[in-house]
Design a protein around this nucleic acid. Structure first.
Length: 563
RNA sequence: UGGGGGCUCGUCUAAUGGUAGGACAGCGGACUCUGACUCCGUAUGUAGAGGUUCGAAUCCUUUGCCCCCAGCCA
């Protein structure tokens, strides 16, 4: 892709520079390093796209490496889900499925080397004491009283930590760097802690000491031969430490480069917060269609093409940013417009009776499956005397610029006939409209007027007698504010949650051709949006999710241009 | 007020000393058997102040604002 000219972002520029200077002998190797402690979200998808994308652009390879150094939080359930999502996004790590835990033995050996170099020591301070000794942002830390133990004593203690002689929290192995460093990460960071967890998902009960991220990550990169270790901005301050371990160990030294993580407006993007949405019941689960998780987006109806295109448009940079979620929605519409089969569905039905249409007659009309794709062909839809149209498409007293059905007005029923509203029947008590009566022009069959007369509007419909009942779930943004962290003093981000983000419409009507729709199938319901079949569907009741609405300049106009 | 990063249309992102461009969002219009799609048009931006230079988003000085770091999380 960039073979001929300029790189498209600063990381690719750095990779090209390294290729030109032969820093890695022209080799490009990256890795995607998730911790298997939760589900992937679209922020991870950005990292995946960068890691795999750059490797691909420069004829390199990208591995999958699980950063499984904390067994108290990790589980196989997550590794399986993560692998599924990466593949679903269309990326492939071939046989390179690695685990930081694969390197526990090697990492332990490395630690021994550092102890022998007097670059690491066992500290008996408690967690609280270590925190206290660490100092603050503006004051230097103090050295631990255990900092100058002999090599032999450190070796002995570390070995016994490994053997399980000591309880959790009683001792740690720390790097001996600089307690006065302005970079707090360099103030003798912890390398190993004792964790007598029941079992690690890969190594079982073999270990009761586990390496910290900072100690494990760079060395894992080195062992694998990674050239470019790409990560997010918050690791920038960790880079000196990343480099320090590699330099002290005198082993192969990859280059860490940091980029800004993805944020989306009207949602949150951290596992810690997403898990709260799940646990506190704001959503139904990790795969709730409102969630920015890959599981959620997929259930919502997002395609891999739309997500990958979105990620390409977002780009890669170091600016903290919040991407407008409208861009994601645009990418979905853009993809689905080309591929989604059109159907007719009425979400909020109101009955229309064509008074001059023969009782009992069922007409078959042709409907185009996808105007963007002539290959998609056409289908038959059934027209009868009684129909349903959308409540929104009728108005007894129309506002200005309202082109749809109202008393005396003629509209076209999509692929059907021109109809003119003649009267309405209301509930005498509530005033609610029960039926709309119309007449049709038999010469407009299929939707074309022989005499060339025009109507301002075409509306969708289904037969009242030949249609399917279905449930449709409408989704709105999860949060009320673009930035959920815009808060009043003392408020939690959950205060900004949009409690109306889910609307269930239980009594929708669908054209009969939808009968065979299966979970995951995606359609455009004409004039409404894109919808997919939710796995909650049963033999007797289809359930659809609205993935995204169609753009609707009328509603903008009608609402006075708000929103 | 220690250390590390970052400030370009509303939101993202290009331009690497030489015409500030693109996308999304917005607005206006054309087209239309989806008020969709498509097409056309249009407004809005280099954080501030100095300096270097024929020429500065880009280089220098300085000010301001924003983000990250004080887990035995990653």
């Amino acid at each position: 892709m960039n073979a001929s000219n300029t790189p498209t972002d600063f990381i690719r520029a750095a990779v090209e520079e390294d290729n030109h200077t032969n820093r890695f002998n022209g080799r490009v190797q990256t890795r995607f390093p998730p911790e298997p402690n939760g589900y992937l979200h679209i922020g991870h998808a950005k990292a995946i796209s960068i890691d795999f994308g750059i490797a691909e652009d420069y004829n390199g390879i990208c591995s999958l490496r699980f950063d499984d150094t904390n067994p108290t939080k990790e589980d196989v359930e997550y590794v399986d889900a993560i692998k599924f999502d990466i593949r679903w996004l269309g990326f492939d790590w071939d046989e390179r499925e690695f685990y930081a835990s694969d390197y526990f033995d090697q990492l332990y050996e490395f630690a021994l080397i550092l102890i022998k170099k007097e670059k690491a020591y066992v500290d008996d301070l408690s967690a609280d004491e270590i925190r206290e000794y660490r100092g603050t942002l503006t004051e230097p830390g103090r050295v631990s009283p255990f900092r100058n133990r002999s090599i032999a004593e450190n070796l002995d203690l570390f070995e016994r930590m490994k053997q399980g002689e000591f309880p959790d929290g009683s001792r740690v192995l720390r790097a001996k760097i600089n307690m006065a460093s302005g970079n707090i990460n360099m103030r003798d960071p912890v390398m190993y802690r004792i964790l007598h967890t029941p079992s690690h998902h890969r190594t079982g009960s073999k270990w009761c000491i586990y390496p910290m991220y900072d100690y494990a990550h760079g060395q894992s990169d080195s062992i694998e031969g990674v050239t470019h270790s790409l990560c997010s901005l918050e690791y920038e301050a960790h880079r000196p430490l990343y480099d320090w371990f590699l330099d002290e160990l005198e082993i192969y030294h990859p280059r860490q480069i940091e980029f800004a993580r993805l944020n989306l407006s009207f949602t949150v993007m951290s596992k810690r917060r997403l898990i709260r949405l799940v646990q506190e019941g704001f959503v139904k689960g990790w795969d709730d269609p409102r969630m920015p998780t890959i599981h959620g987006l997929r259930r919502r109806g997002f395609t891999r093409a739309s997500i990958r295109n979105f990620l390409d448009l977002v780009g890669v940079a170091k600016n903290d940013s919040i991407i407008d979620i409208a861009l994601l929605e645009h990418c979905l519409r853009n993809d689905l417009n080309k591929i989604a089969t059109r159907k007719m569905a009425v979400l909020r039905p109101i009955k229309v009776i064509i008074d001059n249409f023969p009782e009992g007659l069922v007409e078959e009309l042709d409907a185009i499956n996808n105007p963007e794709d002539p290959q998609a062909g056409s289908r038959k839809i059934l027209f009868t005397k009684e129909l349903y149209i959308e409540q929104e498409d009728f108005c007894e007293v129309p506002p200005p610029k309202y082109y749809r059905l109202f008393p005396g007005n003629e509209v076209r029923l999509r692929y059907g006939y021109f109809i003119t509203c003649t009267s309405v029947v209301k509930d005498p008590n509530t005033g609610q409209i029960l039926e709309i009566h119309c007449t049709y022009d038999p010469t407009t069959r299929g939707g074309d007027a022989q005499d060339g007369r025009k109507v301002k509007s075409t509306i969708h419909w289904v037969s009242a007698t030949h249609s399917l009942a279905a449930e449709v779930r409408l989704y709105d943004r999860l949060f009320l504010t673009e930035d959920p962290f815009e808060l009043e003093e003392g408020q939690d981000f959950t205060a900004n949650i949009n409690t109306d983000s889910l609307e269930v419409l239980p009594a929708c009507r669908m054209e009969t051709s939808l009968k065979s729709a299966a979970a995951g199938d995606i359609f455009q319901f004409e004039r409404l949006g894109y919808f997919n079949v939710d796995p909650d569907s049963t033999e007797i009741k289809l359930v659809f999710n609205r993935s995204v609405s169609l753009k609707d300049s009328w509603s903008r106009l009608a609402s006075g241009g708000k929103k």
